[in-house]
Computed example of a mutant assay.
Amino acid sequence: MNPTATAVRGGFARAWIELRQMYRNAPELLGQFLTPALSLCALYLLRNREYADSGLSIAELALPGLLGSIIAFNGLFAIANVLVLDREDGTLLRAKAVPNGMIGYFVGKITTAAGSVLVQVLVVLVVGMLVIGGLSPDGPGAWLTFGWVVLLGLLAILPAGAILGGVLEGPRATFLLTMPLMGLIAISGIFYPITALPGWLQSVAQAFPMYWAGLGMRSALLAPETVAIEIDRSWRHLETAAVLGAWAVVGLLVAPVVLRRMARHESGSSMAARREKAMQRAF
């Protein structure tokens, strides 16, 4: 039996166990859904405020963007935080001690992260359609667009999260990463049309996958005439696929190199040094 294939199957089995544990644990569920729930509450309060003369409320326009931000923001942190914490507590070192353990470990963690993000997206979509409304997927083509945007978004984001998890040192570093990411959310047209921003901020936002994930969600879930508020009055599907695809290709090429380097440098002494630093910060 192929040892690599066995490790991959073990990774999928581990992911299934972790996902079941995640959704049977109240604190984990709270951590997963607190921010989306608060966002939905804010959008519910804005459901009667119309944006310009679009005929849609601000909440209806923002809901697809919220789904895009879940893919980008939660997808990145779902893998980055896990890698940082598992290096801190020795989980990664124990995986390294098992033959082909790193393969199974990474397959499991990436599958768990992707699964948790997919569940969040589907739950928020269903709840949002019920309490806010305004979404009008136009047949199988719209759902096909929804599917490829989610898939490409995850392929673009998860490798980036793995890279950050491989280079960041300590939970404090991942916490500090939150601030620039929240800034990206603010300028990415997630909760308000990007066309209302200055041109240079629009250019900055379009360099990152968060904007394109939100745009793809809007193209799939909003009425066709809503395209009038977008840049160039176009959903720009080709550009969306190109930018998300470029991030995915670069991430998939760079992430294995970073993760192999991280794994090579994992040792008992490096873990002890991190624990010592953590104790010094605590006191």
Rank of each mutant, 00 (worst) to 15 (best):
S188E: 00
S188G: 00
S188T: 00
G189T: 00
G189F: 00
I190M: 01
I190G: 00
F191P: 00
F191W: 02
F191D: 01
F191M: 01
Y192P: 01
Y192K: 06
P193A: 02
T195S: 03
A196L: 06
A196T: 06
L197I: 03
L197A: 03
G199C: 07
G199Y: 08
W200P: 02
W200K: 10
L201I: 05
Q202V: 08
S203P: 01
S203Y: 03
V204Y: 05
V204K: 08
A205E: 02
A205K: 05
Q206P: 06
A207R: 06
F208H: 10
F208V: 06
F208Q: 10
P209H: 03
P209L: 07
P209N: 04
Y211D: 06
Y211T: 02
Y211R: 07
W212C: 01
W212R: 09
W212I: 01
W212G: 00
A213D: 09
A213L: 10
G214C: 07
G214T: 05
G214P: 03
L215D: 05
L215E: 08
G216D: 09
G216Y: 13
G216V: 04
M217Q: 04
M217N: 02
M217S: 03
M217H: 05
R218T: 04
R218M: 04
R218C: 01
R218Y: 02
A220V: 06
A220D: 03
A220H: 05
L221R: 03
L221Q: 09
L221N: 06
A223C: 13
A223M: 13
P224H: 07
P224G: 09
P224I: 04
P224N: 12
P224A: 05
T226Q: 15
T226D: 14
T226S: 15
V227D: 10
V227W: 05
A228M: 15
A228D: 15
A228I: 14
A228F: 14
A228N: 15
I229G: 11
I229K: 09
E230R: 13
D232E: 14
R233D: 08
S234R: 07
S234N: 07
S234C: 07
W235M: 10
W235E: 04
R236Q: 15
H237N: 12
H237Q: 12
L238Y: 04
E239M: 11
T240C: 14
T240H: 12
A242V: 10
A242Q: 14
V243F: 07
V243A: 09
V243L: 08
V243H: 10
L244S: 12
G245D: 06
A246P: 14
A246E: 13
A248P: 07
V250C: 15
V250F: 13
G251P: 08
G251L: 12
G251V: 11
L252S: 08
V254A: 08
V254R: 12
A255Q: 15
A255G: 13
